[in-house]
């Protein structure tokens, strides 16, 4: 039935964020930065570095359609509210978006009435210290990178910084972002106007 097919679309309805999803997400982002799983192969690291640099560029350019296309359909964008990330089932996060909420976030920015982004912030992102870790098989990788976002808003430049964990998944020969965990170093502090996409 077409109705059912439509309602399962993660852009429209949120079925994939279930108990199993949360359990797997928390497990995946626990203890993954294991020296023994670090990939020393530079061409592979360069491939992911290029991907993260592209992500930074499209976000700096507010090219959100290109950015969304870099994510799997059933994705998650998660900025924890505590330095050890915590459990999103029992703790409020700074941000925790599934596909639909990410599209909400972008929709809101485009309404013309998002006063926190009027005028829009200008950003320049530096992505460094990229490390690639093995995951369950050759179609999954975990990336750690450091970021420094210079944001010009309200007549001044400020810096947002921290590190990201990307869960990459190879789908139809393309590497896509399945989960992005953004760890702001001041995630548990009061932040002025946290309204850009990190």
């Amino acid at each position: 039935m077409t109705m059912a097919a439509v309602s399962q679309d993660p852009s429209v309805a949120s079925y994939y964020v279930d108990d199993a999803f949360y359990g797997a997400l928390v497990a995946r982002f626990t203890g993954w930065q294991d020296e023994a799983r670090l990939i020393g192969d530079y061409p592979e690291r360069d491939l992911f570095r290029a991907l993260l640099e592209r992500e930074a560029r499209v976000l700096d350019q507010h090219d959100y359609d290109s950015w969304l296309a870099m994510l799997t359909r059933a994705c998650v964008y998660w900025a924890p509210g505590t330095p050890q990330a915590g459990d999103p089932r029992t703790e409020i996060a700074v941000m925790f978006d599934d596909r639909r909420r990410l599209e909400d976030r972008i929709y809101r920015l485009r309404t013309g009435y998002a006063w926190s982004q009027a005028p829009v912030s200008r950003t320049v992102r530096l992505i460094t210290n990229v490390e690639v870790f093995e995951a369950e098989d050759a179609d999954h990788r975990m990336l750690r990178s450091n970021f420094l976002i210079s944001e010009f808003w309200d007549n001044q430049v400020r810096v947002l910084t921290g590190w990201c964990g990307h869960h990459m998944e190879k789908t139809d020969g393309r590497w896509l972002i399945r989960a992005k965990q953004i760890n702001l170093i001041d995630c548990d502090q009061c932040i002025r106007n946290p309204s850009i996409i990190l």
């Binding site: 409020i92 996060a93 925790f96 976030r105 809101r108 006063w115 926190s116 002025r192």
Partner: peptide, 18 residues
């Protein structure tokens, strides 16, 4: 948790700007 993240993310930021 998810319902509570909604308003701060998409509502409060605009009030604070105002």
């Amino acid at each position: 948790m998810r319902t509570q993240e909604g308003f701060p993310n998409f509502g409060e930021v605009d009030d604070l700007a105002n």
